[in-house]
Design a protein around this nucleic acid. Structure first.
Length: 192
DNA sequence: GGCACGATTGCT
DNA sequence: GCAATCGTGCCT
């Protein structure tokens, strides 16, 4: 039953901005030793490398970004500031290094810590670099559509923490649930 | 081999 | 405003 809800590979082949928006409201699930930790995705950001200067893949293929260049529907996890992990969903066709950063979750079940912000999200779900490259259509880490998804009011804004990216920094490629208190930052929840 | 810095967070 | 903390990418 639950498996029928799991997002299939084709879902991740969608246009990346469409995907980033569509992921709002979906459930992220991490199974650790048989126990599921589940959160509702309330904030995402799209990274459209290699053109997008804010994307890690804008500097070309490297050991770290290798996963981004692979097929969609895999996890790209990296360490930031020496202490936090960030989880991305690889999107775009193979060879097109796009990804969607998952920035915040509202608790659904099995969570004992806040998951508001990309670093906290990974800590709350128990995700670290060992999850890099995991196939999201597998049985360890995946995203599923809730059985009765409530309507969602989607907001958009510029992405956070990428002021160095020049003109790309202004692109409204951050998506969030306007009614969720779990959305990270004190940033204005611009409508649209 | 060395070094500057980051898709963050929380405390001062 | 800034420290914490370390892998990565780029330079010497």
């Amino acid at each position: 039953m639950a498996s029928t809800l799991r997002l299939p590979r084709d879902f991740y082949r969608q246009d990346t901005l469409t995907l980033a928006r569509a992921l709002i409201g979906m459930h992220l699930v991490h199974r650790i030793e048989g126990v599921r930790r589940i959160g509702r995705i309330v904030e995402t950001e799209a990274y459209l490398g290699p053109e997008d200067r804010a994307a890690h893949s804008s500097r070309g293929r490297t050991a770290r970004t290798e996963v981004m260049f692979g097929p969609p529907g895999h996890a790209y996890v990296y360490l930031i500031y020496g202490m936090w992990h960030c989880l991305n969903v690889v999107s775009g066709a193979e060879g097109q290094p796009h990804a969607v950063l998952l920035r915040a979750l509202a608790p659904v079940s099995g969570l004992t810590e806040r998951a508001s912000g990309p670093g906290l999200l990974c800590r709350a779900l128990g995700i670290d670099r060992r999850a890099n490259g995991i196939d999201l259509t597998g049985a360890t880490l995946w995203i599923e559509r809730p059985r009765a998804p409530p309507p969602v009011r989607i907001g958009r804004s510029a992405r956070i923490g990428i002021d160095y990216a020049g003109e790309w920094a202004a692109r409204p490629w951050r998506f969030f649930d306007r009614d969720s208190p779990e959305v990270s930052g004190r940033r204005a929840r611009s409508t649209r």
